[in-house]
C-alpha cells in the first residue's frame, strides 16, 4: 500500500506540458494492472502532480511508466531590457514561496547572507535585479574549484538511481561538488539575496551534433539547471555547470553570457520538478530523481527498497 508521485512542470519559460495526454501503465510483480493516475493541481499554476496508487499486498516489484506530451523552447533574453527591470515592492505569492529555504537549499544560513553582503558590498538593492542575479551566480560558480561531472548515480542499462547531492550548505565546505550541488548553492545565494529561485530537474534529449554542451551528445538523461524570477517577466533559466569556465571571471555583466538566460539548447530539455524530491514534505532520500514513493503512508520503508528511474523522451521534432 503506497503511492508513486511525480511532478510535471506544466508552464515555464522553456517548457509547456499537457497532462491531458497523460498515459500510465503499472506492473506489480511483473503483472500488468488496470490502474489510473490521479492528476492534481491547476496546470496554469505551473506544476501538476501525478499520483499512482499501489494496492496493499505482498509485492516484490513495482514498475510504472508515465508519459505525457511536452514542448520545449529555445530561450532568449533582451539583455538591455532585462537590466531595466526594477526590484518589486513585494513578490506575488506564487513566486514568493521560492524565497524560502528548502531541504538542500539552506538559504537562511548565515554563510549565504554573508556571501551576498561581501559580493554586493551593500549595493544589492541599487543594482538592477537581473544584473545582481547575474553577478551573484558568477561569483558563486567561481567559488568552486573542483566539480565532479558525475551528477547522477547510475545503475547501467539507461537507468538512474538519482542525483548525487550534498546540498548547498555542505557544498560550501566540500572539496568537490556536482552540477546538482552548484545548482543548489546558486539557488541558495539568490534566495539569500531576496531573489526567488529554484532548481529544475528535467529530461535532456541528447544534443545531436551540437558540441557546445557538457551533457552527453548521444543519449537522453536526467539533468538539472536553475532559474530565478524576473518580476513581471517570468523565470530566467541558467545552468551553472555549463557556465563554468568559458571566461566567466572576466565576462562583462552587461553582455550576454552563454547558458545564462539566452540558451538555444533549452529546446532539448523538458522540466519536470522544482524540487529533487517533490511533495515529500521536504524529505530528500539518498539519491533523489524528481519523484517520490511512499509505503503505507511513510516515506521510509521498514525494509530496504531500491528504486531505479529511466527518463523517457521521444522527440516529435520541430512544431
Amino acid at each position: 500500500g503506497g503511492s508513486i508521485t511525480i511532478a510535471a512542470a506544466t508552464v515555464d519559460t522553456a517548457t509547456v506540458s499537457d497532462l491531458r495526454g497523460l498515459e500510465t501503465s503499472i506492473r506489480l510483480n511483473g503483472i500488468p494492472q488496470n490502474t489510473s493516475a490521479r492528476v492534481e493541481g491547476d496546470p496554469l499554476s505551473g506544476s501538476q502532480r501525478i499520483s499512482l496508487g499501489i494496492p496493499r499486498g505482498p509485492l516484490q516489484t513495482v514498475s510504472a511508466r508515465v508519459t505525457w506530451p511536452a514542448i520545449a523552447f529555445s530561450i532568449g533574453v533582451d539583455e538591455q531590457m532585462a537590466a531595466k527591470v526594477t526590484w518589486p515592492r513585494e513578490w506575488v505569492p506564487e513566486v514568493a514561496k521560492f524565497l524560502a529555504p528548502s531541504q538542500g537549499i539552506q538559504s537562511d544560513n548565515e554563510i549565504f547572507k554573508a556571501f551576498v553582503a561581501k559580493t554586493t558590498e551593500g549595493r544589492l538593492r541599487r543594482t538592477p535585479i537581473y544584473l545582481a542575479a547575474k553577478d551573484l551566480v558568477r561569483r558563486t560558480i567561481m567559488e568552486f574549484r573542483n566539480v565532479d561531472s558525475q551528477t547522477l548515480v547510475r545503475e547501467g542499462q539507461g537507468t538512474i538511481r538519482g542525483f548525487r547531492l550534498q546540498g548547498a550548505l555542505s557544498s560550501t565546505g566540500a572539496l568537490s561538488v556536482t552540477p546538482g550541488d552548484m545548482v543548489c548553492t546558486c539557488v541558495a545565494v539568490l534566495r539569500a539575496a531576496g531573489i526567488p529561485a529554484r532548481p529544475v530537474i528535467g529530461i535532456y534529449s541528447g544534443s545531436g551534433s551540437n558540441p557546445d554542451t557538457k551533457l552527453p551528445k548521444d543519449r537522453k538523461t536526467l539533468c538539472v539547471w536553475a532559474e530565478f524570477n524576473l518580476p513581471g517577466c517570468g523565470w530566467v533559466p541558467f545552468d551553472p555547470y555549463e557556465m563554468r569556465g568559458r571566461g566567466l571571471p572576466q565576462a562583462n555583466v552587461n553582455q550576454p553570457w552563454k547558458w545564462f538566460g539566452t540558451i538555444k539548447q533549452m529546446n532539448r530539455r523538458v522540466g519536470l520538478a522544482y524540487d529533487f524530491a517533490p511533495f515529500n514534505h521536504g524529505m530528500i532520500r539518498d539519491w533523489p530523481a524528481g519523484w517520490v514513493w511512499t509505503v503505507s503512508g511513510q516515506t521510509t520503508a521498514p525494509f530496504r527498497l531500491v528504486d531505479a528511474t529511466a527518463p523517457l523522451m521521444v522527440s516529435r521534432g520541430q512544431i
Binding site: I4, V16, L44, A70, V236, A308
Partner: peptide, 28 residues
C-alpha cells in the same frame, strides 16, 4: 501563442515537441 508565454524581455523560439516521462522500478 503557447500557454504561459513569458513577457518581454524573455522570448521563446524553435519549439520542439516530445513525449516525456519516467519509467520507474521499485523492488525490495
Amino acid at each position: 501563442s503557447w500557454p504561459g508565454c513569458p513577457a518581454p524581455p524573455l522570448y521563446r523560439s524553435d519549439p520542439r515537441g516530445y513525449t516525456v516521462g519516467l519509467a520507474i522500478d521499485i523492488g525490495a
